[in-house]
Design a protein around this nucleic acid. Structure first.
Length: 496
RNA sequence: CGGGGCGUAGCGCAGCCCGGUUAGCGCGUCUGCUUUGGGAGCAGAAGGUCGCCGGUUCAAAUCCGGCCGCCCCGACCA
């Protein structure tokens, strides 16, 4: 048995790595903390990117590309920002190598750069340096841009997709004339992320705002979506920041408003990354491998022909190709795997591990009876159905799988969300059950820090309207630790 | 950066403590035959600077010294 997957009940972390590798999403690279994204993983990212890109463009954003390298001095211009990122930057100091007297490659001392370059950990600084030249008047605003790029953060500890030193993401950067407009933008993006997570990834999320200690370095407010993984740990799936005028101040970016006054520009930035692939794996997959929501699956339907001899082969393949055509015409992504180098049983397993939502098997029996065997990945059930009207049947099946995955994940999330009122209960639930814990907090960083230190749980977010209502967190109470008054419950969890 | 583990065939490992012909095993790969509706079977074959550098020795995967790298757990983080 190749590529055995460790069951989740035995070792969840190992299961995750096993699934990623068995499903051929990614490999380790020769460089510590980096990963090779394989065709299956990259196709998934391309699908995610296509959906998000469309949503960004529909809301008026345009794509751009800024350089990978940022002058070192830029990073120092925003005080909180430098503090947040300085510790994890890759720095370029030389422009060439040479052979030393021992024949080893070393950076050529003569090529030392006048000013070091950093490999972007995020692009606010270079973008606001540029905005300061693009923006003079209120007529230049708003600017709504996005870029699909790679960034590097020199992390101590990495995990495939969830935290790698280099990762792919999109980063949106916007400039506005008013505070209100910028906040509105940040929340609009948060809604896009929410829609994407729930309707495409089939992953329910809580929309919230971060506490000051969990905020993006340089932001005034960080909005986020938080998801719950199958092991009861939370995962920050996307963030949207209201940056206030912090970067405008740092890069002296002012505009003349309609009252003929000079004013700093208001900003947002927002991003989601290849981490979402990790989130997808940890939301739906099982001990048999990857489970993908149909709306993002690179292959929605795989067709597997079964035959023993040439006569059967030609009859079966003819039928299989007709079905492939029918399903492709209906708009599905379809793969007919007619390779004779692998046997049907092997293929069944292979596509199950890779999470293909629907499998159609066609053998001599089916040709004779005008049927096909339809199997769905999410429930691992199969049935033999008539071959007529197959496209509609597949459409209904894919829709049902998409809905089932979301409903299942939502039920799990709800089941794993617990209201607690005492610190004892909090610790007990955290240890024995995990998940999201809704508890009162007095709003002080001291209490937050103490809870984190004592339990490793952090405040994932303070729910915004939609989820505050759904979760019933907007009620007065007393902090579970200090007993001080609290205006609302917040979401605690151990996080990735 | 602290704690732990590991570098031997493409992958996963044994051998090392106690030095001794040609360094093994499983999976994978290749060839052939039989198979093909849930990860095939049999037979044969190919594949190795034992992480790197140095030392001890008649002899080093094995002992000694140094170096490098990776993984896991913590602190930090999308």
């Amino acid at each position: 048995m190749a590529d055995a997957i460790t069951p989740r009940s035995v070792d969840y972390a190992q299961w995750y790595v096993d699934v990623v590798r068995a499903a051929k999403l990614a490999d380790y690279s020769p460089v510590r903390g980096c990963m090779i994204i394989r065709p299956n993983g990259y196709a998934l990212w391309e699908n995610m990117r296509a959906v998000l890109d469309r949503m960004f463009k529909e809301t008026g954003h345009e794509n751009v590309y800024f350089p990978l390298f940022i002058p070192e001095s830029f990073l120092a211009k925003e005080a909180e920002h430098v503090e947040g990122f300085a510790k994890e930057c890759a720095v370029v100091t030389h422009s060439r190598l040479k052979l030393d007297e021992n024949g080893r490659l070393i950076p050529d001392p003569d090529s030392k750069l006048e000013e070091n370059l950093i490999v972007r950990p995020t692009s606010e600084t270079i973008i606001w340096d540029t905005f300061s030249r693009w923006i003079q008047s209120w007529r230049d605003l708003p600017i709504l841009i996005n870029q699909w790029a790679n960034v590097v953060r020199w992390e101590m500890r990495t995990r495939l997709f969830l935290r790698t030193m280099e990762f792919l993401w999109q980063e949106g950067h916007t400039a506005h004339a008013t505070r209100e407009e910028a906040i509105e933008e940040a929340l609009r993006i948060l809604d896009i992320y929410t829609t994407f997570a729930e309707e495409y990834m089939a992953m329910p999320v809580i929309q919230g705002v971060k506490t000051p200690s969990e905020r993006f370095a340089g932001a005034v407010e960080t909005y986020c979506i938080e998801a719950l993984m199958q092991d009861g740990r939370a995962l920050q799936a996307g963030t949207s920041h209201f940056l206030g005028q912090n970067f405008a101040r740092a890069f002296d970016c002012k505009f003349q408003n309609q009252n003929n006054e000079l004013e700093y520009v208001w900003a947002t930035s927002w991003g989601v990354s290849t981490r979402l692939i990790g989130a997808l794996v940890m939301t739906h997959s099982d001990d048999q491998g990857l489970v993908l929501p149909p709306r993002l699956a690179p292959t929605q339907v795989v067709i597997i022909p079964i035959f023993r001899n040439d006569a059967e082969k030609s009859a079966v393949l003819e039928r299989a190709q007709a079905i492939e055509r029918e399903l492709k015409d209906a708009g599905f992504t379809v793969k007919l795997d007619a390779r004779e180098t692998y046997r049907p049983g092997w293929k069944f397993n292979e596509y199950e591990v890779q999470g293909v939502p629907v499998r159609v098997a066609i053998g001599p029996r089916d040709v004779a009876q005008g049927t096909v065997e339809l199997a769905r990945r999410d429930t691992r059930t199969k049935e033999t159905v008539s071959g007529t009207g197959l496209a509609e049947r597949v459409r209904a099946l894919l829709d049902d799988i998409q809905q089932t995955l979301l409903a299942r994940a939502r039920a799990f999330r709800d089941e794993m969300t617990t209201r607690v009122d005492s610190y004892e209960e909090f610790k007990e639930v955290l240890e024995e059950k995990g998940g999201f814990i809704l508890a009162h907090w007095d709003g002080t960083p001291e209490t937050e820090a103490r809870i984190k230190e004592e339990t490793k749980a952090t405040i994932r977010c303070i729910p915004l309207d939609r989820d505050a209502e759904a979760l019933g967190t907007r009620e007065e109470g007393c902090d579970m630790l200090t007993g001080k008054p609290s205006k609302q419950r917040v979401v605690f969890a151990k996080a990735y």
